[in-house]
Design a protein around this nucleic acid. Structure first.
Lengths: 123, 123
DNA sequence: GGTCATCGTTTACGCATGTAAACATGAACA
DNA sequence: TGTTCATGTTTACATGCGTAAACGATGACC
């Protein structure tokens, strides 16, 4: 089962640093998202059920940590979009962003470097 | 309100060619998705309610056509992903696909050309 | 040992979604 | 004119999600 959007926000917190307590997670994400204790707890439980996080006992409470890696998550999500909207091809995706003027100067520099490196390692 | 995944499949049909009747849409998408008449009709109605498609009477029936353009849809979706997962930057996205070996030879050629063109038009 | 604070677990509830059946309506035909 | 066929409209129903309150267990403290 897929990690939902709200759940992903919890995951991001855990990816940044883990293991962490629920209280700790709430402190980081609550104010920013306007979420209350119960919300964070429910999300954590759903993530446990989905096996996206694991919990290890620490005295009276649990410390939570990702089981699903960010790489795995990002891969699923971006492959989904790529396949659904761009026929699985990367160049059209970039072309789209280019047309939308979403390519910064920095992006362009980095992309060039990336392509250069691909050439290098390939020769 | 956002166009859902199932709804997007109907949209794709309409983007390919429109206006079209419900029957016509069903013929194209039904067998492939295993959807029945009622399903397609419901999806069309939800899309109407969301103003993503419009319907024009054609005798006893309606002909449906997109109101939301594919460009608009693709933009929303891809900007969402870009922001959520890559800090809104394109280069990291491409780097990700590169690491996942999702860059085909053809992609690389096209990306180079794209970057070249950007240079050209800018100078 | 009874009470309180602290955690986690269970239950709730409205809304969206996927999937479709039931119903309504109007045209066509017997 | 009553029946049938084709369409669209309404209703349904299970599941997941966002958001949280209620409940339960357990350790700490008086």
């Amino acid at each position: 089962m897929a990690v939902s959007e709200a759940e992903a926000i919890i995951m991001e917190v855990l990816w940044r640093s883990s293991p962490r307590s629920a209280e700790d997670i709430l402190a980081e994400v609550g104010p920013q998202q306007g979420w209350q204790e119960g919300t964070v707890k429910s999300l954590l439980n759903r993530l446990l059920k989905k096996k996206a996080v694991k919990a290890e006992r620490d005295g009276r409470r649990y410390l939570y940590a990702p089981r699903l890696t960010r790489e795995q998550y990002v891969s699923q999500e971006s492959k989904g979009l790529l396949d659904r909207l761009f026929g699985g091809r990367v160049a059209p995706l970039v072309a789209h962003f280019s047309e939308q003027r979403k390519l910064s100067r920095k992006d362009i520099v980095e992309l060039k470097k990336l392509l250069q490196e691909l050439d290098d390692e390939q020769s």
